[in-house]
Amino acid sequence: MTRYILRRSLEMLATLIVASFLVFVVCEFSPGNVARKTLGAFALQEQVDLLYKKLHLNDPLLVRYVRWVGVLTGLQADPLQDPALGLDFKDPRGKQYFGNFGYSTLFKAPVNDVLWDRLGKTALLAGLAFAVIVPLSLILGVLAGMRAGSVLDRSLSTLSIVMTSIPEFALGVLLVAVFVVALGWLPGTSPMVGNTGWSTASQLVLPVAVLAIYDSGYVARMVRTSMAEVMQKPYVRTAVLKGLPRRQVILRHALRNAMIAPFTVLLLQINWLISGVVVTELVFAYPGFGRMLLEASLFGDVSLIEAATLVALFVATATQLLSDVGYRLLDPQARR
């Protein structure tokens, strides 16, 4: 098992390196040159040309990629922080350190200052949502799949479909209408700052509720299908005809096998919760990672896009690794 994890981690590293190159290529080759994007739309052409030269943007792609990796790993100083450029880009960490993602032109701050704060906020939202999604979807799915075709199954399945088919923004607006406008129990926006008169906890309730409701319906459908399938398996019949109590049949024999298929789906939700919940973040003005990525893309903030995409890629590959390892733990046949 240790060897497997080690091998998969190395594969993950290789994937990240290849992906980082692709990310670099896409960002640097998107319309408009990097110098222009860095200086903004109102800079003079001379300034752009000067920066273009300073940054050696005429060099071959691979050379520039190696240079970018050099800055990222701290082997090289960030050329943008050179005072001679007059850009006034300052990083308290210095010019040259490991993990230097460069300078965000949108937020006028080092990428590291922006990125980790936003990621932390999103991680909080995602963590809370995930902590609701897992038990809720499992309970709904298992109860429904336990007796496929029963009244309970049909009611819970209908509920799941309804939950997952209301779009996030509609659900957000609906919840706001009820809990903010009508009842006044909760704040309508969640900027996560202290001076709104609402506690941070109260600001988290609605975004978490939207994510949990929307996603649990979907995951519950997956769990239900898998559970219903497992309940038809001969080994469940064996367990029943051994004279085991129904509770034990479900918990000991069916559940673990029913978890194998939805486990991967469940972990993929982490991925989505980190980088795919832009709509919910926008509805509640939540200062999250997805929204930051959207804003950076619209603005053309190359360094921030590159950094954020790399982080998203890392989350994606890490959850993949986690799900593969978990899969092996759940299914003895996958272990060899």
Partner: peptide, 20 residues
């Protein structure tokens, strides 16, 4: 079931729980 009366199945491969 299982105590006074027990059953042996046609396909032993599927009659046993693969994850126990």
């Amino acid at each position: 079931r299982g105590a006074r009366m027990a059953i042996v199945y046609q396909e032993p491969a599927t009659a046993l729980n693969p994850s126990m």
